[in-house]
């Protein structure tokens, strides 16, 4: 059975070459028909192959959940919740003014992956920190309200994140990822 695959490809390549050679020795009309048939066949083959690959892409029911809306009103200051977005855990934290102050007072030069707190939150909504809850080292979920920087601590390999979710110490290379999101109203946020 195995020999059929290379054999078939050989036939296709050599077969078309034979046709082309024959075409070369004959009239233009014959040439045209061969070329047109080959071209139309190639288009058809591509049109068949694409859906066979595209079926691997996320289906309609998955895409329908690619973007979710979340109501922040129920989260009191100083608390966070973990929600699911695209199958990933996402931290939503209602930060206290002290946490915000702490995050903003750190000089960028002290950061492994320099990013300001403003870049990680939305203007006018500084109390809300939303980020994908997978440690950027190897994907564990860090523990909240812990670590040496009052933010998160990943128990797997000891990465410490600060109150803006930025990596401060440990093996993780980058800050916790902020997903694309926008505020629809003061308390309603659309993630994705």
């Amino acid at each position: 059975m195995v020999c059929w695959l290379p054999a078939a490809s050989y036939v296709i390549v050599r077969g078309y070459a034979t046709l082309a050679t024959q075409a070369h020795h004959s009239t233009t009309r014959r040439d045209f028909i061969f070329v047109a048939t080959g071209a139309v066949g190639a288009v058809g083959a591509a049109a068949v192959v694409w859906p066979l690959i595209n079926q691997l892409n996320p289906d309609a029911s998955t895409l329908a959940l690619a973007s979710i809306e979340f109501d922040l009103a129920a989260i009191p200051e100083g608390q966070s919740v973990t929600i699911t977005w695209r199958g990933l855990p996402v931290f939503v934290r209602h930060r206290t003014p002290a946490e915000i102050e702490e995050a903003r007072s750190v000089p960028l030069s002290e950061l492994k992956d320099p990013q300001t707190d403003e870049e990680r939150t939305k203007e006018g909504h500084a109390q809300w920190l939303i980020m994908v809850a997978n440690c950027t080292h190897l994907g564990c979920v860090p523990i909240g309200d812990s670590g040496d920087f009052d933010g998160w601590f990943c128990p797997c390999h000891g990465s410490h994140y600060d109150t803006a979710g930025r990596i401060r110490q440990g093996p993780a290379p980058t800050n916790l990822v902020v997903p694309p999101y926008q505020f629809i109203s003061d308390t309603l946020v659309q993630i994705g």
Binding site: F34, A36, V40, G41, G44
Partner: peptide, 11 residues
């Protein structure tokens, strides 16, 4: 495609 193949085959 069938039409073109018919012509090719006939040639």
């Amino acid at each position: 495609f069938a039409g073109l193949l018919y012509l090719t085959k006939r040639r």
